[in-house]
Write a protein that binds this DNA or RNA. Structure first.
Length: 891
RNA sequence: GCCCGCCUGGCGGAACGGCAGACGCAGCGGACUUAAAAUCCGCAGCCCAAAAGGCAUGGGGGUUCGAGUCCCCCGGCGGGCACCA
């Protein structure tokens, strides 16, 4: 683009703002004056504000998503600081995880070396952005100083009964050779590796998050500064439901090896519509049958391989195996229903067994149709006319085709439930089950306990020892941290800790016998579940120092991607409660305010051969046709989508900062659109932002170094008053916009003020004299502009601040937020729209709050309005003060 | 399939139920320049020669003096979850 700074020679009379020297200079000034450092325990009497952006995984380079995230947080931090808050704004590294091990396997670099090299590179890039961070608090989760404290927390939770070791069906990732929590399986694939997941039985460590399910759900209501949709997603994830557990007696206990099957249902009202019972392939009953029936074994084995991704491709693929067993119906003991093993029944939800009511559940219906099972309607839709249900036109009454009916209605064909509503029938059915001793009403949760074991090296060691005699023995607190051994090899799959010659061989702390150290490490979500608390006292000898954490927590404003809406945020909420239960802190909720930003997107490009091209490989001809820069080859412009390495539609923040500076990058990101939406990164947009930085600087230079007159002159001319009003209205508008995260609106208002300053500059030039009132007003406007722009473009703000007053004792970053003078913000006159029958026919300029009679008279007298009213009878006059008049006419 | 968003000029977007399109990007015209770039100024939703007027916030209804905004139906786009009984 022609707007590139390289091709913009500095004009001799107006040297351009040189961000290359200015940005590092101001960054040094902030550091020297410790502008962004906060005390662990800040002094009482001043309000505190904790701003936190989700800390990054140290992949090696920052990407535009980071730039957006940290810019948003920095605006908040700088703004709140100017508003008088003592601000905590830390940064650290989510430094454990698989990519480091992959690098070790692929390139022979030690995970620690790889990680710390990446951290150094990314820290340098973040520092170039000019973020107002307290770098003294920086830590990486892979440092023993951090994860050792995490081990303490774990042992406290173990003591408090919040940890459990149990055998369970888990998702096995064959590529990563590790277990994934159910929440981490996406479409049957590992959320990190993408490998198809298999089911496997393994001993695992679990954190008992389910114990907090009711509280985690109830407390969502209090999170009024969270996005509604995040709360909804969490509520659905926790998944409270009311239903019944009931036991079905098997009619041939000898064959089955057990005499009953327990089922959970949310629809006990449809029990009379039952035509089969189905258990999950992992159900104990299925396992017993498989042990003696080769065909049952073949079916369950097939289900295990299949995972869940099949269902996406083949929606109608309901598979089952008829066990030949039967259960008795609880209300009609003479009725026998067949027992199936079915691939759509989940072992982890409810009891792993269901009763099938095909008429009123789509999955059950699909299954029944596939295997020729009966369909017995028991809910009749109530006709809209309020007549009797089950009339001739009512297809829900008898005729179920391929659509199950799950709407409202009345119960039919169900003996003692007949005629009841669904809700009444549920209650009645449950009380009958209770009377018969066959079941009870229960509340069920979808949320499962959090499996935290990982068979990996690059994670926090789980601090326990397995002793043949004593069982599981916690590592004594005095010997913590359990430090990862550095000398490991990655020449074979699986966990290097298992292959280490000595590390796992230890004496039992209890009996002294030879014992084995736990070689599982924690899920990295554990690391990120309490880092926000550690930031309050990052060097404390305990996990958190109470005095600090109680002063700072909860985080006032947390900012990050929507992709963490469920897992990370839910785990952090759980961890906070668990830390409270173990006496580490006293808050319940970690994040008072949450903001979820949109993604950064970019056009994608392919050459004639279909190969993806990076944006910098593409240029535009004069008529806008894209072509390959190297050889002019044809280029197809693809969709605008999230930046990704595979599509090569990425833009490197480092290159942008080199070329335009950090302020330009920050400004464009804020200006383009509302921060919660996806933004499109465009070259033209950055160039525009760059031009604005130069323009602001030139406006400040336009004062030509003229000192600001000491006092506001007693007489203020029209031009000066116009500018002063623009200045103060801008303060009010920008303040309101920043409070509401409407950064793009703040940018628009700042453009307007810049335009007003430009006009004033010309007005002053036209008078050809130093009109002192105007000069003073321009100083005021530019001073204000510098402070208002400072949260967003901090370096340029300092540069302008310094230019206006080279002797200033304080930096712009140290100044208080400007106050708007209400007298100047108030309108001098208002434009009132005049409508006839709701259609605009004219406008009036009036003093604010003019008496209604005068406004109405003036409105009716407006020529265009008068023409529209001519010969008509006005039946109603609507007057909204300072806004609108609407005449309603007859006919 | 279920749930949640979103839909406004060429583009990003603005708009307590009250003048739709602020501000910017791209565009066009002008000034400056030998010329271009940069810069500065101005124009700009669509129809109509213009005025007047009409049409315009995905489509259709409704509530209201007045709807981009509230309600109902439909369509499209995006996202989340998914055999969750």
């Amino acid at each position: 683009m022609s707007a590139s700074p390289e091709t913009t020679p500095a004009r001799p009379d107006a040297p351009a703002y040189d961000f290359r020297t200015a940005e590092p200079r101001w960054q040094r000034a902030w550091a020297e004056r410790a502008c962004f450092e906060a005390e662990d325990v800040p002094p009482q009497g001043r309000p505190t504000y904790y701003v936190l952006e989700m800390f990054p995984y140290p992949s090696g380079k920052i990407h535009m998503g980071h730039v957006r995230n940290y810019t948003l947080g920095d605006v908040v931090a700088r703004y709140k600081r100017a508003r008088g808050f003592t601000v905590l704004h830390p940064m650290g590294w989510d430094a454990f995880g698989l990519p480091a091990e992959n690098a070790a396997r692929e390139r022979g670099i030690h995970p620690a070396t790889w990680t710390f090299d990446n951290i150094a590179a990314m820290r340098a890039e973040l520092q170039r952005m000019g973020l107002s961070l307290d770098w003294r608090r920086e830590f990486a989760t892979c440092q023993p100083e951090y994860y050792g404290q995490q081990q303490k927390l774990f042992l406290d939770m173990l003591r408090a009964g919040l940890v459990e070791r149990r055998e369970s069906w888990v998702n096995w990732d064959p590529v990563d050779q590790t277990v994934l929590a159910n929440e981490q399986v996406i479409d049957g694939r590992g959320w990190r590796s993408g490998a198809l997941v298999e089911k496997k039985l393994l001993s695992q460590w679990f954190l008992r998050i389910t114990r907090y399910a009711p509280e985690l759900l109830a407390a969502l209501d209090g999170l009024d500064r969270w996005p509604e949709r995040v709360r909804v997603m969490q509520a659905k994830w926790i998944g409270r439901s009311e239903g019944a557990r009931l036991r079905f007696a098997l009619t041939d206990a000898k064959l089955a090896g057990q005499d009953e099957v327990e089922v959970y249902t949310t629809r006990p009202d449809t029990l009379f519509g039952m035509s089969f019972l189905a258990v999950a392939p992992e159900h104990p009953l299925a396992a017993r049958l498989a042990a003696r029936d080769p065909r049952a074994a073949a079916f369950t084995a097939e289900c295990r391989r299949m995972g869940t991704s099949e269902a996406v491709i083949e929606t109608a693929e309901k598979r089952g195996y008829d066990t030949g067993l039967f259960v008795a119906h609880p209300f009609r003991p003479q009725l026998r229903c067949p027992v199936w093993i079915a691939n759509f029944v989940l072992m982890d939800y409810g009891t792993g067994a269901i009763f099938g009511c095909p008429a009123h559940d789509q999955r059950d219906l699909d299954f029944a149709r596939a295997y020729g099972l009966p369909v017995l309607p028991v809910v009749a839709a109530v006709p809209a006319d309020g007549g009797q249900p089950g009339g001739p036109d009512d297809d829900a009454a008898g005729a179920i085709g391929t659509r199950a009916y799950d709407g409202p209605g009345r119960i039919v064909n169900s003996e003692f439930l007949d005629g009841l509503t669904i809700e009444d029938a549920k209650r009645r059915a449950i009380s009958e089950l209770e009377r018969l001793g066959l079941g009870a009403g229960v509340v069920n949760w979808r949320l499962r306990d959090w499996g935290v074991s990982r068979q990996r090296y690059w994670g926090c060691p789980i601090p326990v020892i397995h002793c043949a005699a004593c069982g599981v023995v916690p590592v004594p607190a005095a010997t913590l941290p359990v430090v990862l051994p550095a000398d490991v090899t990655f020449d074979r799959p699986g966990n290097p800790l298992d292959h280490h010659p000595t590390w796992r061989h230890v004496a039992c702390p209890n009996c002294g016998a030879a014992a084995r150290r736990e070689t599982d490490t924690f899920d990295t979500f554990v690391d990120s579940s309490w880092y926000f608390a550690r930031f309050c006292s990052p060097h404390a000898a305990e996990p958190v120092a109470c005095a600090a954490v109680d002063r700072w927590l909860p985080v006032d404003q947390y900012i990050g991607g929507i992709e963490h809406a469920i897992l990370h945020l839910l785990y952090a909420r759980f961890f906070t409660r668990a830390m409270q239960a173990t006496g580490h802190l006293s808050v319940e909720e970690p994040f008072r305010g949450l903001f979820t930003q949109g993604m950064v997107t970019h056009e994608s490009y392919r050459d004639a051969a279909g190969k993806w091209l990076y944006p910098e490989e593409v240029e535009r001809t004069a008529d806008g046709t894209p072509r390959r820069r190297a050889d002019g080859g044809a280029v197809t412009v693809g969709r605008v989508e999230a930046m990704s390495k595979s599509k090569r539609n990425t833009v490197d923040p480092g290159a942008i900062i080199d070329r335009y500076g950090a302020d330009t990058a920050r400004w464009f990101i804020l200006a383009d659109n509302p921060p919660e939406r996806d933004m499109e990164w465009t070259e033209a947009g950055v160039a525009g932002a760059y031009r604005f930085t130069q323009r602001l600087f030139r406006l400040a230079q336009g004062l030509g170094g003229a000192a600001c007159p000491e006092e506001l002159p007693p007489t203020i001319g029209a031009a000066a008053r116009t500018l002063r009003r623009a200045t103060h209205r801008c303060v009010a508008a920008v303040t309101e916009a920043l409070e509401g995260f409407a950064f793009n609106v703040a940018v628009a208002r700042l453009h307007e003020l810049a335009n007003a300053v430009g006009e004033a500059e010309r007005a002053q030039g036209a008078t050809a004299d130093a009109a002192v009132d105007l000069l003073w007003s321009r100083h005021e406007a530019l001073r204000t502009l510098a402070l208002l722009v400072a949260p967003m473009m901090p370096h340029l703000a300092e540069e302008i601040w310094h230019l206006l007053d080279p002797a200033a004792a304080r930096l712009a970053a140290e100044m208080a937020w400007p106050d708007a003078d209400p007298a100047l913000v108030a309108a001098e006159s208002v434009t009132i729209a005049v409508q006839v029958m709701g259609r605009l026919r004219g406008t009036l300029e009036m003093p604010p709050d003019s008496p209604e009679a005068i406004v109405l008279a003036a409105a009716a007298a407006e020529p265009n309005v008068a023409r529209a009213l001519e010969g008509r009878r006005v039946v109603k006059r609507v007057h909204v003060a300072n806004r609108i008049v609407n005449f309603v006419i007859a006919g």
